[in-house]
């Protein structure tokens, strides 16, 4: 049955239209959760506001469990779902550069679009920064091409690389997330900060 577009249940154009509505849901939930505020987002790195950690991990395990159950019920064919390919070196180096950008800029790309949509000027400037970063990558691609394409591991799943079944790994991740939520609740009490 699912994914709908891969099985011809909806056309490619309908898929693009639905992308717009999925985006509306995405932006609405991000903004409602407070992700349009850079100081709220950055709070996770100082313990005063851990909304990022809670929303991010709750969303990841909800979608992960949803897909595993839908696959179990035969509602979705996981073989037709895109699994992001893993390029070990560029995933790490790119992630480190993004982490530095996160603590300096206070946003990530999705949240900056969201912040800009409600009038946050710092978010709009962050979006301009994104363009500068991507233009820089585009014009200097030959410098990075080797790193970008190094250590390709294919569309590998974390459960396979650990030698676990998907279900056991999912359970493990849920337990880890619960532990992090516990620490997050403790940290917010330990490092309170006045609202602004």
């Amino acid at each position: 049955m699912g994914p709908l577009v891969a099985n011809g249940i909806i056309t490619e154009n309908t898929n693009l239209l639905l992308a717009f509505f999925i985006g509306i849901g995405f932006g609405f939930v991000l903004e409602s959760s407070g992700f349009s505020s850079s100081r709220k987002l950055a709070g996770v790195f100082y313990g005063y506001d851990t909304v990022v950690l809670k929303v991010f991990f709750t969303a990841a395990i909800t979608a992960m469990l949803g897909l595993l159950f839908m696959s179990l019920f035969g509602w979705v064919d996981l073989e037709q779902i895109y699994v992001n390919p893993t390029f070990l070196k560029s995933a790490i180096v790119g992630g480190v550069v993004m982490g530095a950008g996160f603590i300096m800029g206070g946003f990530c790309p999705g949240t900056s679009v969201c912040g800009a949509s409600i009038g946050k000027i710092d978010a709009m400037v962050f979006v301009i920064g994104l363009f500068i970063g991507v233009y820089f990558f585009a014009f200097t691609y030959s410098w990075w091409e080797k790193l970008y394409k190094a250590t390709p591991l294919g569309n590998i799943k974390v459960s396979d690389s650990l030698g676990l079944s998907d279900g056991i790994f999912a359970l493990l991740l849920v337990v880890i997330a619960m532990g992090m939520f516990y620490v997050a609740e403790w940290a917010e009490k330990r490092f309170p900060r006045e609202e602004y």
Binding site: V93, G94, G99, A100, C108, F126, I132, G133, V134, L147
Partner: peptide
């Protein structure tokens, strides 16, 4: 914000995606 955005945009290209 500008510098952070530039780093994030660059890093996201390298890592084939962002957060």
């Amino acid at each position: 914000a500008l510098v952070g955005g530039a780093l994030f945009g660059f890093g996201a290209q390298l890592a084939r995606g962002c957060t």
